[in-house]
Design a protein around this nucleic acid. Structure first.
Lengths: 243, 243
DNA sequence: CGAGCCGTTGAGGGGATTCAAGCTCAGTGG
DNA sequence: CCACTGAGCTTGAATCCCCTCAACGGCTCG
């Protein structure tokens, strides 16, 4: 099943292989930011950069974890199904985030990971990460920090997006999406995706978006799935909704 | 503020210091299960066992993380406050779980951790864990596994307990509590705590418990905060609620 | 006893869902 | 060219679930 290519402002990668980790634009955020030049030199020949279109899978729940991925550009979502078969979106990852950490433990992936926008990734094979972690204590430290961050994001998701009245949850989602903004253009999920993030029905999600559009908080852009956010109006709406 | 001591069936520790990690009843589940006898010997003189009453704090959000804790007995909850000041319970830990992992990274604790029942803990100072982790790769591996488990539990909480109709969420909570059962006696949280776990009001929580009691799923025991669960009835109720 | 905490139950209202219809837009094939 | 189709989104009306507000009972403790 092939998805239509949505136009999205992403810098083109110089190739699937030819970038150097030393000059990586997300190096300071990324896992290997902790390493020195020599280790990086050895490293970047083993790392493959890949690019995915929106709605393509990064990996699937249950498949053997052979690599983790650094998100260089774009947004990735984590999906899971409840026991009664309804899909739930449980977390988002953006630029600089590390996804599929369980691969480092040689465990199968715990969730489905899917690209929300066109996405650029760096593939970090387990064996490579293992080898480097054996030598570099700083890398081990950084790995553990990543895990801790994942815990905090998961907890924040359930403490912020899963509770309270629907309009408030929607506003909090907008705040989160704004953090992944690309030069003022913010990703606006499809209505059924919003519904699966906030535990709503498509209809309610649609009503909420419509209201925010009328109030000027959201301005939908072309192509679809893009918006501009009025930060001030968002803050105002939040302050009012939290009372 | 001192809490009344509720009677709860817990094996008494032999002392605050004198246990040997080698014979620890949770060793196979615990962090240091990965270590050999010699390392354990050196270890157990540095580890302090402590006992908390129900509702006593293990640690508080923001305070400097100087130690992680292994739960030897009892249940610990993690609390957090939303921006609008309402309390939320975001996760539970039980026998064999490791809490306060962020201390290993010398980070402040991310949440409040509070004993739900009388609790026995082993205190693992950061410096000790750091030192051992430097020497033993197996321990590092186990630490990372713990982090991964924490992520999965946090995700499961928001995917299972935070979504769907209230009766269903309540039943799923019972399933979770059952896993922490102590010889058939299951901890039954106070109504306001149930409310903070499932994002309900106290009244709704009370109504749900009452209904389950009438239906025979729950039998409340003395002293308060104890119950017996009818597993078969629970499964039946779940099957019906998930349709 | 009175006060306060914890739990329970009822009545009423509001917010989200359900059910239903209709819209726009892109792709398809006559 | 245009009818037809399906996906995504929107809107309305009716229903239902959970919240709000309120009162009350049991219990412990000062």
């Amino acid at each position: 099943m092939l998805m239509p290519v949505t136009v999205w402002r992403t810098p083109q990668p110089s190739g699937t292989q030819g970038h150097t980790c030393e000059r990586c634009e997300v190096r300071s955020d990324a896992l290997f930011g902790a390493l020195d030049g020599a280790a990086l030199e050895r490293l970047h020949t083993d790392i493959a950069a890949s690019q995915l279109q929106a709605e393509q899978a990064v990996y699937g729940r249950g498949s053997p974890g052979v690599a983790a991925y650094t998100v260089r550009e774009g947004i990735v979502r984590f999906e899971r199904c409840t026991q009664d078969g309804r899909r739930r979106i449980v977390r988002l990852a953006g630029r600089g985030d590390l996804v599929g950490l369980e691969a480092v433990l040689a465990q199968p992936y715990a969730e489905d990971a899917v690209a929300c926008t066109p996405v650029q990734l760096c593939r970090l094979p387990r064996l490579l990460v293992d080898a480097l972690a054996g030598e570099h204590a700083a890398l081990r430290q950084e790995l553990m920090r990543r895990w801790q961050r994942a815990v905090e994001q998961a907890v924040a998701w359930s403490a912020e997006l899963a509770v309270g009245p629907a309009p408030l949850r929607m506003l909090r989602l907008l705040v989160l999406l704004q953090r992944h903004a690309d030069d003022g253009r913010v990703w606006l999920p499809r209505r059924d995706q919003i519904a699966d993030m906030l535990d709503l029905t498509v209809e309610t999600a649609s009503r909420l978006v419509s209201r925010l559009r009328r109030e000027g908080v959201i301005t939908e852009l072309l192509p679809p799935r893009h918006m501009r956010l009025d930060g001030a109006a968002l803050v105002r709406a939040l302050a009012q909704a939290e009372r």
